[in-house]
Design a protein around this nucleic acid. Sequence first.
RNA 1: GGGCGCGUAGCUCAACUGGCAGAGCAAUGGACUCUUAAUCCAUAGGUUGAAGGUUCGAUUCCUUCCGCGCUCACCA
Length: 513
Amino acid sequence: MAEDLGTTEREIIAQRQKKAEALRALGVNPFGNGWQPVHLAADVVARYGDAPATEIAKDPGAWSIGGRVLAVRSFGKAAFLRVRDRSAELQVWVKRDRVGERAFEVFKLLDVGDIVGVEGPATRTKTGELTIEATTFTILTKALRPLPEKWHGLADVEQRYRQRYLDLVVTPGVREVFVKRARIISGIRRFLDERGYLEVETPTLHKPEEAGGAAARPFETHHNALGLDLKLRIATELHLKRLVVGGFGRVYEIGRIWRNEGIDRRHNPEFTSIEFYQAYATYDDLMRLTEELFHRLAVEVTGSAKITFDGQALDLTPPYPRVSMLEVGARVLGLSPEDALAGRGLAEALGRAAAREDVSGSAWKLEQAAKKSPGEAIALAFEIFGEPQLPKDRPTFVVDFPLATSPLSRRRDADPRLVDRFELFVAGMEMANAFSELNDPTDQRARFEAQMKAKAAGDEEAMPYDEDFVRALEHGMPPTAGEGIGIDRLTMLLADAPSIRDVILFPLLKTRE
RNA sequence: GGGCGCGUAGCUCAACUGGCAGAGCAAUGGACUCUUAAUCCAUAGGUUGAAGGUUCGAUUCCUUCCGCGCUCACCA
């Protein structure tokens, strides 16, 4: 990129470097340190609020703030600066007769984008704006490159993602998204800590046989000294359940997950998940916990349980409706749940569904499903026909998952063809996935064996057989329920960001030539 | 990976049917001590994403490539 500098930009940088030298000549280090602001812009705002100029004049204070200059309106011997620090924006008034000749010479070398330090009393200008009337002024850091245009800012989304530092400086609302993200994560921590959960960290480098816990292709890497092929984790599940075996009855991990899949508005190759496990709970308990968590986060982060996502109003007030994957999946195929689970008439029903005009893109998948298990076919029918019909104004729990889609879930006592599992859908996105955990080691072996068969048959997302995990289960894992939530998607929801790249500071992009 | 769209000055955008690449902001010089996209005068700034092709002539048409967005497929 540096080689692509246009003449103009090169000139701008040269001009600013000359100004930096001029600052040195004035005894000001253009990249100095040691100057510390005593206050934040927000302190000044909080102190005076809407107080009139006469009130402020009685107690104008001696403020000291540092920040980036976003705009300059200059009048020759005085100027107004818009300065932003980490807390807020504040106007600064630099007048030659207040700051003195020398500081004013420094001011003349100021460019928009520079970092400055100012001290002085507060006042309110004729137009009513709270302002620091500088008595001292210095440039702390010279910006050699110009900021994007002040009015339109950065419109090029590619540049916004590649140069997020600029995006944060000039694009309104970006900073707030990441503040919300931080509050969501700390809110989840608080919520779980209050309930006696212990936060843990498990390996992100997995041996090939450990890289399970979800249906996804992992990234591959290698440890040189050990001569060991490794994979980046695709889930934290299997290690967290080992910890439940070990006696941590309530554990969670917030951490990075990598999946070697496509990239789109809802998928980034690396993303952050929260998984938590609670001994002696069932998936039904977790539904209530999830409702409570989502409701509380919405109120904490947005101020209300009623939010808007992508133009759609959503109410996160519990309870959330439940939709049966089995019933809907069977119904859209024109079958009874019993017939669908037993596979009676399933192939014909899938053929009819594939022939429908509204499924052109998914037709081949429906045809493929006829070769798979009834459970997988039901799940697919639900995904294609049922998901688009889920309520749009409310979160929805999807329940009654067929066994075949869930190699780590506990079978339902009342019907072993199903598992005790739910997924939470909000705004068309899968936000959470939870189930009562399979703790019968013999059944777990059978499930892993089925995964091995699927892998042998070409399913690249099938899980490896994790022998040590089964061994852990053989030592006894208490009845447990566990859940995973995608932090990025949750942030999208609560920050009303329609693309996952808007909630990841540095989303993965290709290298530019 | 497929389809559609986009890429012009540091930034935001123009340029008709193929006919001298242009404006605003930023910058530079000047005026200005209550501005809010400050204002006024002047100046400078370009490998039109890259490489080919068609043409007297290409920002414009064609091909390939690079990057980004939307979408489909895969997935959370």
